[in-house]
Design a protein around this nucleic acid. Structure first.
Length: 446
RNA sequence: GGCGGCAUAGCCAAGUGGUAAGGCGUCGGUCUGCAAAACCGUUAUACCCCGGUUCGAAUCCGGGUGCCGCCUCCA
């Protein structure tokens, strides 16, 4: 399996640290705003890593973190007149609700910054001891220029950074590039006790502390949105590697941004689509299809038309599965290999999905006896890609519909189309679409 | 200004040296009381432009043009 690694700028063959196991840390979100489609693209990328490694037989340990304390959270809480904990919990709940609906497999853990203050303080202490951190009036800063590899991940040069910089001027910093590991408490703010007095963690430190705490000083994959490459992940590397003198992660995976009208979807631009409102309008599987039909490293534009297209595409798949309901068989090995060939190349979900459509066409050509094998193959692939296929229709509903449809069939034989059509309309109103085909009448839940 | 990425049909999107996947839409056909769906077929002499390398390039090299991301909080 090959993965593109941001640090080396190349596709690299994946080799786990421990045979058969993979540890992944994927940056979730800062709990300051409603989760939007862009956040879900990241969550989905992590989900595909999670599911696909599992499919390949790995034991996966995936962590998706929440930053529930920092400047932005406090600011947002103040604005909404809420306690920051209340605010964070609220958005976290929104996030997990959307994740569930999108059938995103639960990570091993959703670690939160406020639950790891102890680990954070320990890491900051270590950095201070080694001379990478320095304390000024209860604040602790990271000495960026002392960490030589700084800028390697993002390909930035310190002096160039300086030029275009809008680096915050802070009298207390020895160098404008330095960033906060620990912030002294300000009036009215929440705080924790530390060797430097009352205060709270800086923005980047929690990820370094939590990832190494759960996954070890060096782990397999670290991921996140590509807007986090700088400064967030750059700083994470600096903090962790200055302390441990070991690489933080072997592979850096970054998903590209979602844009809307050719602009990045983000809070500051006020152009984001909350995922939960989108979920009210579209089938979660259609949203998943929309996102997975583009490669995760390619910027993707959002608009209604594309969601509509994805909805039609999903209908197509769904109808095939419903039409072949009850067909039995076993997955076809050569086709699964084809699927893997796509996925092994840096998570080629677009190719994998195109292949599913191909398989559906093929399934239509083969004899009824073989259809089951195709169905099972398609089913397995879709499941690995995280599509949710409800396969247990209510028996009672099925029985009732069978009776009604038999009755309607009699009416049609008698030429009573008026009544037959009326039944169709009424059922549609109840959410059941029926279709008359050569082999009889079929039904499906709309 | 620095760094990175992208440019493929009406829309979306794969493909990174061997002659253009797939989806949506369109059009035609089969089926059908009608409807819907399904199925079959159709839809890029061609991959932003100009040069070059090669038997051969969307794919490699050079030069343009346009768009986006990061350099500040952001998935």
């Amino acid at each position: 399996m090959i993965l593109y690694d941001t640090l080396s700028g190349k596709k690299k063959d994946f080799k786990p640290i421990k045979e058969g196991e993979v540890g992944i840390y994927y940056c979730g979100m800062t709990l300051q705003e409603a989760p939007h489609v862009g956040h879900m693209r990241a969550a989905l990328t992590a989900d595909i890593l999670n599911r696909y490694f599992e499919f390949k037989g790995y034991k996966v340990k995936l962590l998706v973190n929440f930053t529930d304390i920092d400047d932005k959270v406090l600011e947002s809480a103040k604005l909404e007149g809420k306690d920051f904990r209340e605010l964070a919990s609220f958005y976290e709940e929104e996030y997990t609700r959307a994740s569930e609906r999108l059938n995103i497999q639960k990570p091993a853990l959703y670690p939160r910054a406020t639950q790891h203050i102890k680990e954070i303080i320990e890491l900051v202490e270590r950095l201070v001891e080694k001379g990478f951190g320095y304390e000024v009036e209860g604040n602790v800063f990271f000495r960026v220029r002392k960490f030589k590899p700084y800028g390697r991940l993002s390909g930035k040069k310190l002096d160039e950074l300086h030029i275009g910089a809008r680096v915050s001027v802070d009298e207390m910093k020895q160098d404008p590039l330095d960033f906060a590991l620990w912030k002294a408490v300000k009036p009215g703010e929440p705080y924790w006790f530390s060797p430097w007095g009352k205060g709270r963690p800086g923005w980047h430190i929690e990820c370094s502390a939590m990832s190494t705490h759960y996954l070890g000083e060096t782990f397999d994959i670290h991921g996140g949105g590509d807007d986090l490459i700088f400064p967030h992940h750059e700083n994470e590397i600096a903090q962790a590697e200055a302390a441990t003198e070991k690489p933080l992660a072997n592979y850096w995976v970054h998903n590209a941004m979602l844009t809307i009208k050719d602009e990045k979807m983000s809070k500051s631009l006020q152009n984001f689509i909350p995922i939960n409102s989108l979920l009210e309008e579209y089938d979660p599987n259609a949203i998943r299809l929309y996102l997975l039909q583009a490669h995760y490293r390619r910027q993707l534009n959002y608009n209604r038309e594309m969601l509509k297209q994805a909805s039609s595409g999903w209908e197509h798949i769904k109808i095939f599965l419903e039409r072949t309901r009850g067909y039995e068989g076993k997955p076809i090995a050569s086709y699964l290999e084809e699927f893997e060939k796509n996925m092994d190349d840096d998570l080629g979900t677009p190719g994998a999905i195109a292949f599913v459509f191909d398989l559906i066409s093929k399934a239509n050509e083969v004899s009824k006896n073989d259809t089951g094998d195709y169905r099972e193959t398609i089913y397995l692939i879709l499941g690995t890609l995280g599509f949710q296929i409800e396969h247990e229709e209510s028996i009672a509903l099925g029985e009732v519909l069978d009776k009604i449809l038999t009755l309607r069939s009699d009416l049609r034989k008698e030429g009573n189309y008026k009544m037959a059509d009326k039944i169709r309309v009424v059922l549609l109103e109840a959410g059941i679409a029926i279709e008359d085909t050569r082999d009889g009448t079929t039904w499906r839940v709309k």
